[in-house]
Amino acid sequence: MKLNPIFESSARRRMRTWRTPVILTAYMAALLCIAFNTLFAFFGDGVRIAQMRLSTEGYIWVTALQLGLIVVVAPALSAVSIAGERERQTFDLLRVTGVGTRRIVLGKLMENFAFIALLILSGAPAMMLFHITAGISLAELVATLVYLMVIALEALTVGMAVSALCRRTITAMVMAYLAICLLGGGAWALAKHGPFAARYTYESLQALERMGTAQILMGMPVPVFFCPAVGLVSLLAQQTGILHRTMQQTMRLFDIYVAMKAAGFGAVALVSLAASALSAALLTAFAVAALRMQDRAALKRG
């Protein structure tokens, strides 16, 4: 198989910098801190049933932290990739080789994704600890890791699309974070305050539960599924059940939560996963088109 040269070269360069092991170590340390803190509390006073919940909460925290770190790290990684080539003045050299815009975007994306996947997998040992204490099955752990990787891919493609448009890395990074905020926050705001929100109250839960899953899902506002938090909340609620109880108590964090519960958390998580994958594919196509457009503009500009 012919390896994408941009992927090969970028990966080689990334793994040679001192930053890479530092980021990996810091990332693992942050996750292990939370995991061990939970475990010490778990074993500190003898194992009791009540502590099982503590352990499950630890799993939720570690997973949420993984998501948070991914959302912070991924756009920064991909936003500098193409804009960095322009800033370094190496983009012209790439253009004269005749390498296509699609290969450039895919090469950069693959390399960034490989690094993010490594980060996520480096957090896996911390999550594995909860396999012992919180009763999280290996299949559930794998499902969570896959979900995190899809979210990471989505976040990377946001950065990549912006990077294809921007000439400076700093502009690309700012724009990428703005786009991420818009994607996550916008979907959440729409779910909470949008025209559909009023439909999903606890009073309507019983009525909703009489409807079929497909009907509820189709009634939900589409942008909700593109919000990474919605998918992760559904996945964790499906896996642990704790989130469900916490949500019931604190309520109103997500009005849409009622619909998520009625439709079934597993189904919402699946649709959300598909939406993230779709969004990643669309954003990649957008990045290729944007780079092609910028290429033409650069040609005219000279």
Partner: peptide, 24 residues
């Protein structure tokens, strides 16, 4: 071009190997 256009953390042969891959 009249500027270097080189990448850091890449050996001389790897630099050429990268562009050789790009030209197919």
């Amino acid at each position: 071009p009249d500027f270097f256009g080189v990448y850091d953390n890449l050996k001389a042969w790897e630099y050429l190997d990268f562009y050789a891959g790009c030209v197919g």
